[in-house]
Amino acid sequence: MSSSYEKEVKESGSKESNLTKRIDFGMMKYLWMANPLSRVRRDSIPRFLRNVELLKNFSDNELRILAKYMHSRKFSESDVVFREGEIGIGFYFIFSGLIELSKTDYGNEVGEEKFLILDEFSYFGEMALLQDGNPRSATAIAKSPCELVGMFKPDLEHLIEKHPVIAAKIIQSISLALADRLYFLTEEASKLSRRLRKLERQMAEKQVENK
């Protein structure tokens, strides 16, 4: 039995195996909630969160509670969500629209570096939730009219006080994502340093040959 009914339905939907004749209230409830005509905001955020990869180990009820601690924010095209160097206090999921992340290049080699464009169901700024008063490492700008769902440090504090289990889960999820990224970066860094060493050695050999 999966903790998420929606996930369960998704998984069993393709099999078409055990269709019983009894009225399935859970199914009816799901169909009612999934009704495209129902525009209840309260349901739409948890439903959105269900599809976020980061929150895959949350149950439906946990997502419902989590959604209460999040803030829906609307941004117009070319609005700045946050700037590099500002003190950040939270992170955002993209409910709809496109967000561009960029980083100023202080070596003045390529100017402003646009390195990532994010779309629905992705998230950004998650480091701010774990850091204490550190500046943002990139600038986020809306590339189209956007709706973001944000979670901030005060929310996390309230969550820790009132629903410690959910708070632990969200911190675990973010930590996992960050650990993955750290692992990837360490690999990259060691690859680069190896290549750097190789180049240095080649240069040294060339210099010796030239002499």
């Binding site: 946050f82 500002e86 003190i87 950040g88 206090i89 939270g90 901030f152 440090k153 005060p154 504090e157």
Partner: peptide
């Protein structure tokens, strides 16, 4: 963000 933080 700043307002929310100060308020909190």
């Amino acid at each position: 963000e700043r307002f929310y933080y100060v308020m909190h």
